[in-house]
Simulated assay, not measured.
Amino acid sequence: MKKKIISLLSALALTAQIVPCALAGNDVKVYVNDTEMITDAPIIIENDRTLVPVRAILEYLDYNVDWDGDAQKVTIAKDETTLTFTIGNSVMECSTIYQGNPIPLPKILETAPKLINDTTYIPLSDVTTAFELNITWDADNKEVHIDKYEKGYLTPLIKFGIISNDDLNKSEYITTQEALNTIQKFYTMPSESYFNRWYSSDKFESLNNIDYSSKKLLIHLHSRNLLTLDDIAELKLEDNLTNLQALTYAIRMTGSTYDCSSQIKEIRLSEPSDIYSTAYERNFIDTEDTANAQSPISRVDFYELLNKILFFNYSRGGGAGIYTTSLYKTLQKQIS
């Protein structure tokens, strides 16, 4: 049993890169949701990827596991996420339900599932990613803990590094500076040479009296069509973000980019009634009532709004063709 535990720890080290490669002593334990995991099946490492016995780990997580012997498929389901692995197939079928609609997210596996001695093995890293599992190493107690993120409905934002659990414990309201820094994490930061081309532009004279990092932030978001020059001139970064500001940014983040005239129209929406109407059509809010437009949006409500726009489908493309995507799909590709 001790050898099996050490083998598992070595496997997790390769997958999560957080567990030391060498472990001293024989008192190391592995816990799944605070329950020590005991399994008779060995852990396999192939192509620097860890394969684990599917039932051993997932039954500890209380997931539903179904085996189709004829099709050589194993299906794992929990809440609104379903994974389907096929023995010998390097494509994992993944789908999640959001607002009643299935979102398919197939993923290419570096190591295909295997059937060894009547035991089905699957890649651990892909399971942890799909189900937002967290693997941590407790060096003081020599323990490995596998668990789920606590903030379930905001897990995707945590998974992509948009927010952290610590962010949820901060003040009730979020400042404009904090909000824009959070929004920026949805996008890849341009190179320093990119910013240097903009610094001398007369367009950004209003930024001359702010710090360097804030200037970069605003230029970056302007280049993403999330801030207009008028926005930048009027921004007070230290003020709390209002509901109207939050919805304005949400609309611009999810605007279709294949139709230039439509995109420009959405960027230039200025009347609160128009912004609320568009946000309502996209299911970002439950009512078109603008009564709270100038009130500060709570931190949690802002994060919930970001979670909604994460899965919103919008169109992109041009002469080569038009396709539908979402911020979730874009971020998923970046970490795959």
Rank of each mutant, 00 (worst) to 15 (best):
D138R: 11
V54E: 02
P104F: 06
E271A: 14
F195A: 06
S261G: 00
S262E: 13
D230C: 09
N141Y: 15
N33L: 14
E93Q: 14
A179S: 02
I267L: 08
K73C: 03
E266R: 12
N240K: 07
K29F: 09
A11I: 07
V127E: 05
A11M: 09
E271C: 10
D301V: 01
G25W: 10
I335K: 06
G255I: 04
I232C: 02
C260Y: 13
V300M: 04
Q177Y: 01
Y303K: 04
L51D: 04
I43T: 09
K107F: 12
K107V: 13
E234Q: 09
Q294G: 02
L217C: 04
N26V: 12
E192G: 11
E281H: 12
Y187A: 01
T82R: 15
I146E: 06
K107G: 06
L327F: 04
I158E: 03
R224N: 08
T35L: 15
D62K: 15
D301S: 00
I135K: 10
N101G: 11
L269W: 15
N225G: 09
T75R: 07
V91L: 05
C260A: 14
K29A: 10
S193P: 11
K215C: 08
D126P: 05
N313I: 06
L115W: 07
L247F: 03
D166L: 01
D79E: 11
F312H: 11
E178S: 02
D62Q: 11
V32D: 07
T111M: 08
A41D: 14
A233L: 10
N208W: 15
N117L: 12
Y258V: 05
M1V: 14
D289H: 13
N240D: 04
K333V: 03
D166N: 09
K333T: 00
L133I: 08
T325I: 06
D286V: 08
L218S: 00
R282G: 07
Y314N: 00
F312M: 03
G69F: 13
P272I: 01
N169F: 02
K308H: 03
Y98A: 07
D286L: 12
C21R: 14
F195Y: 10
A77K: 13
R55S: 03
L14W: 11
T287V: 12
N208G: 15
L235G: 07
I18M: 15
I103L: 09
S201A: 11
I174Q: 01
D211I: 03
E178M: 03
G25A: 11
I76S: 08
L180I: 01
V144A: 15
R268I: 10
K148F: 12
V32Q: 05
P272D: 06
N283I: 01
